[in-house]
């Protein structure tokens, strides 16, 4: 499974990106990512979760490829579903490690 993560916007307007492939992660980490994706019920999330923009909020775009399944979700920080935020946090840490 591949997870492609991008965070844009925010006061600083920095683009933070991270791409991970569970095949190249250590088994405990790969397991953790799979659990976070399952907990988010990612493939059933709508493609766009938007709200009237509040200035300087973050925007996220997450794409997951698993076998022949492929789904992209765009979400505004202010309407982030609770079940998705642990996956976002995990990917953000990966992005910070560079």
């Amino acid at each position: 499974m591949r997870v492609l993560f991008e965070r844009t916007g925010g006061f600083a307007g920095l683009v933070m990106t991270a791409t991970i492939d569970t095949a190249t992660l250590l088994p405990p980490e790969a397991n953790q990512v799979c659990q976070l994706v399952a907990a988010a019920d990612f493939f059933n999330l709508p493609a766009t979760i938007a709200s009237p923009s509040q200035p300087d909020r973050f925007q996220y775009q997450i794409t997951i490829e698993e076998g022949d399944r492929h789904h992209t979700v765009q979400v505004d920080e202010s309407v982030m579903p609770d079940r998705l935020s642990p996956l976002v946090e995990w990917m953000l840490e990966a992005a910070r490690r560079g």
Binding site: T8, G9, G13, Q59, R96, G98
Partner: peptide
Amino acid sequence: RVIGKDPQPADMKNIYTGTADNGGVHI
């Protein structure tokens, strides 16, 4: 190295036309 390079254009020749960041409001 981690956060990359400041993406701001200094003039219209280099204006950002993508969709990220609400169409580049901070860019």
